[in-house]
Amino acid sequence: MLATIFSATDARRSSMRIVTLGIGAIVTILLGAALLLFVNLPDANAFNARVEALFVENASLTSGEDIRLLEILAQSGTSFSDVLASYRSIIFVLLVFATALLVACLVFLVALVTVNRRMSEIERAGIQVSSLLISREQRTVYLNNMEFKLTEAAIETLGILAEARMDEDVLSGAQIEAMISGRRPDDCDEAAGATRIKRLRDALGNQIVSELLVKTIARKGYMLSIDKDVIRMV
């Protein structure tokens, strides 16, 4: 059980690490592509500069037609500058949109892989405990949404195991017997604690099997409470 918990924790950590590295790689690649693209784009004022050079270098262009031609060229340069500026804005928006899409795809992919791993762990584990409530007064255990009645000794054993689990402790049979009986662990027998664990397993296990597997039909008999399509006999 501890190995399953640790593997799930490691899987979550590795998934977060993959997401972080993937997002960083995507942002870095797109930033590099954006910088390369913007650097290689022509200068928006290059055309206007060439037209201005024509005015300066050709002082003989004084006729009305020549001046009109140069004015048309200047207007074309201004239009080219405006179009190029709009292209820069469009390219920037597209790069931001592409970054968002790639990051979202990466997150969804990692989430899908994590869910598949989790489902595989649940299938291997059988019953996945999502909540455990122990009522000592009523001698009742609420496992997920199922209610089980236990003896006072079984409730004490389960309560001690639950407290030890919250403290990340592993108890030996002698320690369990000592905590229940109030004696020193050195004065307790390992077999006594093991017997308490066996009785707890028998009492709780029988009820879980009755709840999940073997169903009692009043005045008729018994049957398995599972889908017939999942049964395989070899």
Rank of each mutant, 00 (worst) to 15 (best):
A154K: 03
E156N: 09
V170N: 10
L171G: 03
G182Y: 07
D186P: 02
R184I: 04
I155K: 01
M179G: 02
I180V: 12
A164F: 13
E152N: 10
V170T: 12
R184V: 05
A194I: 01
I176N: 07
K149E: 15
E156Q: 14
E177T: 00
G173F: 01
P185R: 12
E177G: 00
A153M: 11
A154Q: 13
A192E: 09
L158E: 04
D167Q: 15
M166W: 08
G193R: 01
R165W: 13
G193F: 00
R165K: 15
R201T: 12
D189S: 11
V170P: 02
A191K: 08
V170Y: 11
A174S: 09
I180M: 11
D169Y: 02
I197L: 15
G193M: 02
D189H: 05
L204I: 11
A191Y: 03
A153H: 09
K149I: 05
R183D: 15
A174F: 00
A192D: 14
I160N: 10
T157G: 05
D186E: 15
I180C: 06
M166S: 15
G182K: 10
D169L: 07
A162T: 11
A164E: 14
E163Y: 09
R196Y: 07
G173R: 00
I176S: 05
M179A: 13
C188I: 00
G193N: 04
L161D: 13
G173H: 01
